[in-house]
Amino acid sequence: MQLEPRTHTPLWMTISAPIIAVFVVMILCSGLILWAGAPLLQSYVALAKGAFGSKFAIAETLVRATPLILTGLAAAVAFRAKLWNIGGEGQLYMGALAATYFGTGMINLPAPLMIPFLFVVGAIAGGVLLLIPALLKTRLNVDEVVTTLLLNFVILLLANYLLFGPWKDPMAMGWPQGAPIIDEGILPKLVAKTRLHGGLIFAVLASISVWVVMTKTKWGLEIRAVGLNQEAASFAGIPINKTIIRTALISGGLAACAGVTEVAGTKEYLTLDISPGFGYTGIAVAMLAGLNPLGVIVAALFIAGIYNGADSMSRAMDVSNYIADVITAASLLMVMLAVMLTRMRIRFS
């Protein structure tokens, strides 16, 4: 059995490959659902309903997709430049910390200024956090995978310290949570009686902006060139280190904005569980999207839908909601396999 490159890939194949992959995943996961003793068809129906089956379900999926779009973008931008930012989770908390610091009464601005202000300070905090590994990489050749990953724990423990200590809200009856964001800083609700907030619009605009930057600007050309062939980029005179630093600031800033949307949009105050691993799942989102900024929206919706759907499936059918992790992981593998098969063909000899 051998793999050979295809000379060209038909359009129908490019479109149908991920869809087929998802079907394969459903077949593969059937075994687990049956093993849990639940009826297969009803379980998948429950999953689909929980993800997109009602106004409430759709709103919840969109709420969950919002931070995933942003952390997915963060990973996509960084990975394009081959800057392996595994620190989305830490940058997200950094953004959340910044929004809490400035947004709980320290500064009072009218809402049209306050909300952008929170995003700006959040993005700066996240960008600066990723600047540390980026500088270590460009100056001292330190592997950023290790440094970005370890910084996640540093920041999470910092948040722990602050919420159990100096920042603890005295009105929260002893719970480790921050003071509420002032009303001017709260992201407006998009649909009444749901949690859906303006962060979604911000995330979609961010995706479009990143797409524009990557394809239409000088910076995008530099980032892509550095990622695809650093030696040729360097030979042609593209400033490698400057490009990596710039990428780090953009990527860290995007991940931090996910923290801002959670604190100022979903929860309205900082807790230690504002992110069930959005920073890490963002990596899966980016890979699933093939690092395409617009594809990130679709991938984030898909993964958010799976997680929310699995939650309601577990409630209705008594299947553990860990099935969501299995489906996400299997989808990632299957979609990558499918994409590879659109580029290569298998020959049996």
């Binding site: 060139a225 695809l228 062939n229 030696e231 030979f235």
Partner: peptide
């Protein structure tokens, strides 16, 4: 290695 970015287009 140094001459072209293989995954870039001719114009780029």
């Amino acid at each position: 290695v140094q001459g072209v970015v293989g995954d870039f287009s001719v114009e780029e």
